[in-house]
Simulated assay, not measured.
Amino acid sequence: MRRSLSLEPGPDVDDRIIKTAVAPRPIAWVSTVSDDGVENLAPFSSYNYVSSSPPVLVFNCSTKPDGELKDTPRNALDTGEFVVNVVTEDLIEAMDLTATTLPADESEFDHAGIEHAPSDVVTPPRVAAAAVSMECTLYDSLSVYDRTMVLGEVVRYHVAEDALTDGKLDSRNLPVVGRLGGPYYTTGEPIAFERR
């Protein structure tokens, strides 16, 4: 048996434990537009899907030190729309540039020099180079301690043709980036494994 420490969650326990143990975490690269028309793009590694039919995604974000919402969840809640772009290995450096805190009237698309493409159903643009983008309309939101959960119903998919095999999205063609604890990220080769 492994020896282990028993720790109670609280201010004296590093929150890196949960962020490292729950890994790899997919990254939602979320694009929104503010009420003033400013395009926003930011990555969130607390993200997943909660329903597949109909498809519903969730991402969550901590609040600012003053308790106010950050730009992305505020925009999503104000407008009822956002786009989740999938981060692949070729986009990791561009994604990192958009994690920079900018004034609300400045666009991360412009700051990082990221080309965008129009969405079909929602107003926020998508990342043109993303292998998969999912246009979402707001399904619901929930406050959990210092975080805001934003749920979005997917209303349109955009999938790069080179990510498909026989018309289906293929993990072997989608080198997604996952977030680990601390300063670490991961990519990996898919492992073929038949469930019993």
Rank of each mutant, 00 (worst) to 15 (best):
P118T: 13
P124G: 04
G181F: 03
G182F: 13
S133M: 08
P73D: 08
N75F: 09
D78M: 06
W29H: 02
A117R: 12
Y145P: 00
S143Q: 15
T137K: 14
K168C: 06
G182N: 11
N173A: 15
E8Q: 12
P124C: 05
C136S: 07
L102R: 04
T148V: 14
S46K: 08
P54V: 00
V87P: 00
A76W: 06
E194Y: 04
A131I: 02
V13E: 04
V50T: 13
E39Y: 13
A131N: 05
D110E: 15
A94L: 15
G181H: 07
V132Y: 07
N60F: 13
R25P: 04
S141G: 02
T72G: 08
V38I: 13
F44D: 01
F44R: 02
D14P: 12
R25N: 06
K70G: 05
P55Q: 08
N75G: 12
P26A: 06
T88V: 15
I18C: 14
R16E: 11
A131W: 00
A128V: 05
Y49V: 09
R147W: 06
D66I: 04
C136G: 08
C61F: 05
L41Y: 09
A128H: 08
I92H: 08
N85L: 13
D12L: 13
P73H: 06
S34G: 12
T148H: 11
L77D: 09
A129H: 02
D105R: 11
S51V: 00
E39A: 14
D120C: 02
E93F: 09
C61W: 03
V58P: 02
D14L: 14
S62Y: 10
T148M: 14
V50N: 10
D36Q: 14
V84N: 01
G37N: 07
L77A: 10
T187N: 03
E39H: 15
L174P: 00
D66H: 03
V127H: 01
V13T: 12
G178I: 04
T137S: 10
V150M: 08
R147I: 00
D96F: 10
L169W: 10
T165G: 04
V121F: 11
P103H: 07
I114R: 01
T148G: 01
T63N: 07
P103N: 03
S119Q: 08
